[in-house]
């Protein structure tokens, strides 16, 4: 690991000041950042240790929702009674990610900013990676790309976002709250992560001087009928090949409202709006399910090793809806 200046922030302002000076990363759980620093992928000049900031609470909001502090560990969030009962989709997603040890360390804010597991991004021994070294090319286009994107990719980058939590948050219409010295912002979860386009080096809309302070969840109509389904090579402790957050608001067997969000297929949690449209207003019969499954991958473009993800995503969507409806 390269040497860096270490700053311990006692107040949020300390962190914002440090961030404003540039080439600074926030150290919270460290699970992703230190990994990348050891691999020389991240080389910040300075770390600002934000672990002592008062951002580790989960508070009720007047509208019945919750505000989750950016420093809440993933395991605490998954086990919060309010999350388990009112947002079981999020609890399921959280416990399907990483390992118990990592979930004890990793924070909500850090999980939002998790970077891709693309082979060629995490290993600086590969010359070409536009995300790591803009303009250098994309090794994944020709190299082994079984784990890569089928939706929303560009010829500059076909990496996928690795988070499970973010997929559930996107389905739950979460909002990311940020602060900088310029003020506070609220960014809808769906808009927080970016597609690679011509600037794959930018994963999110977060500016370098901004700090994620919280995520808010609106009251959810989906608590009764939701399912996070993660399909992966190992039975545990593996990133998703495909994951699905299916959230349903049912009126009898008719779908009043729905969210279908896919993980493991795109540079961001992929909201399958066509699949949602195929569901809303319809009875959950086989025809509706298969229409939703097919619609979930509209516009998919697979690469040489990952065509299976199209089929897998469609079937996983059907399965997740079926299981979500049953709960």
């Amino acid at each position: 690991m390269r040497a860096f200046d270490y700053v311990r922030a006692e107040r949020i302002d300390d962190a914002l000041t440090a961030l404003a000076e540039g080439n600074t990363r926030c150290l919270a759980g460290g699970t992703n950042l230190l990994d990348l620093m050891k691999g020389d992928v991240e080389q910040p000049a300075r770390l600002v240790d934000i672990t002592h900031l008062p951002l580790a609470g989960i508070e009720p909001l007047p509208d019945g929702g919750l505000r989750i502090g950016a420093l809440v560990p993933n395991s605490d969030l998954a086990n919060d009674r309010r999350i388990r009962e009112r947002y079981p989709l999020l609890a399921q997603a959280l416990v399907s990610g990483a390992s118990p040890q990592l979930r004890n360390m990793a924070t909500v804010g850090g999980n939002l900013l998790q970077r891709t597991r693309c082979h060629y991004f995490v290993d600086v021994g590969f010359d070409a990676c536009n995300k790591r070294k803009p303009g250098s090319g994309c090794t994944a286009l020709e190299g082994p790309n079984r784990i890569h994107a089928i939706l929303g990719a560009s010829n500059r980058c076909i990496a996928v976002h690795p988070s499970d939590m973010c997929v559930a948050l996107a389905a739950l219409d979460a909002v990311v709250e940020t602060q900088s010295r310029g003020g506070a912002r609220r960014i809808a979860m769906h808009d927080f992560h970016r597609l690679p386009g011509t600037t794959p080096q930018r994963d999110t809309e977060l500016r370098h001087d901004e700090l994620v302070t919280a995520v808010t969840l609106p009251p959810s109509p989906f608590a009764e009928h939701s399912r996070y389904l993660k399909v992966r090579d190992r039975a545990s402790y593996a990133f998703a090949l495909v994951s699905v957050a299916a959230a349903l608001d049912l009126d009898g067997d008719r779908v009043r409202d729905a969210r279908i969000v896919l993980g493991g297929v795109a540079h961001k949690p992929w909201r399958a709006r066509d699949a949602e449209h195929a569901l809303v207003g319809h009875a959950l019969d086989d025809a509706t399910l298969s229409a939703a499954g097919a619609a979930a991958t509209h516009g998919a473009r697979p690469y040489h090793d990952n065509a299976f993800k199209v089929t897998l995503a469609q079937r996983a969507v059907v399965r997740a809806i079926r299981e979500g409806a049953r709960t």
Binding site: H119, D123, F126, D127, T139, E142, G143, P144
Partner: peptide
């Protein structure tokens, strides 16, 4: 997994 242009193992 061997990356066939670099000969570098991709999932190291």
């Amino acid at each position: 997994l061997l990356e066939l242009r670099s000969g570098r193992i991709a999932n190291a």
